Every structure is written in structure tokens, then in C-alpha cells.
Amino acid sequence: MIKLCQNLKNYFSSSFFPYNPKGYQNIQQYIQHHQTIKIKLTEFDVSKDQFIFAYNNFIDSILEDDFNIYAQQVCDKKLADEFIEGVSRIKREQLKIEKMVNPEIQEEIYFSDMNFFVNVDRGISLYDHSEVETVGKFPKFTQLHSEKNELLNCFSFGAFIKSKFALKISDIEYEPENFHYVRFMVLKDQEELKSLFKTIKSLLVYNEKEIYLGDNPSWKIIDVDRNMEKKYPQYF
């Protein structure tokens, strides 16, 4: 067991499991754009609390019987597969994964960066697109390539979340009061894609909320603790 746990420590450094139990302690260097992104979300009529709630629900679901289905619903396809395989491998190696809950923790969220994607095919993983061009530093605008006709313009942002929920894996060191990096991306409702007139109108007046969110958007988790960013840096 000691050898297995030591091996698992090495796996975390190579993204064996897309969640780092130690999280992030010093985040000041990453959140210089916090206020700008907070204002943008306010303009979009989006509450920051919903993202803490979404992250908590995801961590809370990891040990549930229907986790595989839930992960596919709320995460990018490739990230969901990483979590499903990671949980399965931990169990195969007879290690113990526990969900820890500390109601005394004061939950917080700080925003780090944002970007806009053009030509996103909602039917595939974000990371299965071909990048065409990225311009700007903050925010970044990335044009992707897909063969589909119904394509999305998507808004994405990263955040550091301090949560009352944490995962502990055997005797691997973990810090329940540290932050975890979580990245979200918004997807427009499929019905709104069929309204060509509404799309053209939004573009003409440049209504960002209509262009990127629409009336009934859904949010996907596309990265946790920079696991996907390390593998697909061109998207970040």
C-alpha cells in the first residue's frame, strides 16, 4: 500500500487524476483580472454563486452510483472521461477515495482569465476541434474549426474556488481549505441556434449576452486544477 500511495503521488504530477488534493494556496498572481471578469458576468446577469454550487455538486457526485452519467452531462467529454477513468483506476489499485465536507469553511471564488471561442461544435469535446487562430491576451478570441453547420460562439472563464467539499485519496496529502482551479464554458440552448433572425440581430447590435449566452444557457466544466490546460495549452 505504501508503494502504491507513493506511485500515486507521482501520478498527480503527471495528471493521472484531474483533481489535485493539495489545490492552490497562493492565488494572488493569478487573479489580477478578477474584477473585470466579475463585471462581465454581472453584465451577463450571471451570479458567481452558481459556479460554486455547480462545482460542489460535481465533487459531491463523484462517489455516487450515477457519477459516470452525471460527469458526461456537466463536463466536457474528454474531462469526464479523465475523471471516470481516474476514479476507476483508484478503485482498481485498492486505494480509498473519500468525500470530505467541512461546513465551517467560508466558500469563496476569484476569477482568473476569460476567453471567447468561435465555431464550437457542441457535439464533440472542445479539445477535438482544430484551432485556427487565437488573438489577444485578455480576453483571448480563439477561432476553431469544425465540419458541422450548427456552430456556437462560446464564453469561457477560469476561477479559483474555495469549497466546503474536498476529495481525499488514501494517505495522499490534501489541503481542504485551499482553492481549486475550475474552468467553465457556456453553451447556448439548442433551440436558440435555430433562430437565424435572432442571431443576425444580436450580431448587428453586438449584444454580447445574446451572442454568447442567449436566454437559457447551460454551463460545462472544461477543466479542473489545470489538468486539461497542461495537455491542450492552445485552448487556454
Rank of each mutant, 00 (worst) to 15 (best):
E150H: 08
D189K: 08
I124L: 09
S47Q: 13
D65M: 00
Y19V: 01
M100R: 15
Q6W: 00
K137P: 02
N227K: 04
F157C: 05
S88E: 14
C5L: 05
I221L: 11
L8W: 08
Y127M: 07
K194D: 11
Q6H: 08
L144S: 05
K96A: 05
I84V: 15
S47C: 04
F138I: 10
Q234R: 14
D128R: 13
T142R: 07
R92W: 03
N56L: 02
L8Q: 05
F83I: 07
V46R: 04
Y19R: 03
S125D: 07
K188H: 11
P103K: 10
K164M: 07
Q94I: 01
D225Q: 06
D121N: 15
S218E: 13
M114G: 00
D49V: 01
S15E: 02
I84E: 07
P21D: 11
F67H: 11
T199R: 15
I109W: 02
K96H: 10
L152P: 00
D81N: 15
E210A: 15
V101F: 09
T134H: 05
F236K: 09
F236W: 14
R92S: 11
N26I: 05
S15I: 08
H34P: 06
S170I: 05
D223Y: 13
I69D: 14
Q73P: 00
K48W: 00
I84D: 06
K22H: 09
D66R: 10
I221H: 02
E191L: 14
R183F: 00
E131F: 01
V186S: 12
F51E: 01
N26V: 04
H129P: 05
E192P: 03
V132W: 01
Q72D: 12
E147Q: 10
G214L: 06
I124R: 13
N227W: 03
G86P: 08
E82W: 10
S163H: 01
F116N: 03
Q190Y: 09
Q94F: 10
K40M: 14
G123T: 12
L193S: 07
F111Q: 00
Y181N: 06
E133S: 15
V101C: 01
